[in-house]
């Protein structure tokens, strides 16, 4: 299985751990991730205003590249995934966006949303499968009570993201079970961490994180895991009460590629 892989800027700098563990795990699970040579930043937020075309162009380039290679496009950062997945839907369904983007990019072949965008979690669930992962686990995370922190961008808007039930998701819990950990469900796992507002109003972001961590701890979480670098930053820097790791780090530990701390 070979996939196109879009790491995004944060994974090249502050979230190297996420990128690096994801690649090693994918290889161990028999999925080859090929990073295109010339991807550009996705812009980090999907422009909700209908008339904003230019901020979507870098996403369209990555999508068209995957189409040219005939491969599915795997994302990892929750923000990149949100932008790429939704832009892809616009290219498939919104005539105005499709026409304007194609006119501007002058691609060798017009792009109209043909690529399948998969988040790494979907790659694990839908292409590799929890049972296949379970079979490869050499160091199960037995006894570790881990809370999944979904945040917003993986799940919402549910009708576009189509990953899971946005109000009661299970994909990360299923993942945690597959690697032998004990998932702890807590209601705040899909409430916002404060996101980029941490730059504008750190106190506000801190208040959000405190509420999340309080709920997670009350429900018995001993650590948290996430797929989003900004969530991880906020949970760590504005909170700190619980250890937070990327889910790919847990996977690497379970597959014996990395020692548990």
């Amino acid at each position: 299985m070979t996939f196109r892989y879009y790491p995004g800027c944060t994974l090249k700098t502050k979230a190297r751990k996420l990128d690096e563990t994801a690649r090693r795990c994918a290889a161990a699970l028999g999925a080859e991730l090929v990073e295109p040579a010339d991807w550009q930043c996705c812009g980090a937020v999907y422009p909700m205003a209908k008339d904003e075309i230019a901020p979507k162009l870098s996403a369209v380039r990555a999508l068209a590249d995957a189409k040219a290679q005939g491969q599915e496009l795997v994302t990892l950062c929750a923000a990149c995934h949100n932008v790429l997945k939704r832009t892809n839907l616009d290219m498939a369904n919104d005539e105005h966006t499709r026409d304007a983007a194609n006119r501007y990019l002058q691609l060798p072949e017009a792009y109209s949303g043909e690529t399948t965008v998969l988040h790494y979690l979907e790659l694990l669930r839908d292409r590799i499968g929890w049972d296949a992962i379970r079979a490869k686990v050499t160091h199960p995370l037995t006894g570790r009570k881990i809370g999944a922190y979904y945040g917003c961008l993986l799940l919402r808007p549910a009708r576009e993201m189509q990953m899971d039930d946005a109000e009661n998701p299970t994909i990360i819990e299923d993942f945690l079970r597959a690697i032998g950990a004990e998932p702890v469900v807590y209601a705040m796992r899909n409430e916002c961490c404060g996101a980029y507002v941490t730059m504008e109003d750190r106190a506000a972001a801190k208040a959000r994180v405190e509420a999340i961590l309080q709920n997670a701890q009350a429900c018995g979480c001993e650590e948290l895991t996430t797929a989003c670098p900004l969530c991880l930053y906020n949970l760590r820097e504005n909170g700190g009460a619980l250890k937070v790791t990327y889910f790919t780090e847990l996977l690497a530990q379970a597959l014996g590629l990395e020692a548990a701390e």
Partner: peptide, 20 residues
């Protein structure tokens, strides 16, 4: 921007803030 970020601030936050 420099006064709003720290060592660990991910690029994602800065890019998002610029967009928003």
């Amino acid at each position: 921007v420099p006064e709003k970020i720290d060592e660990a601030t991910p690029q994602q936050a800065i890019a998002a803030a610029f967009r928003k």
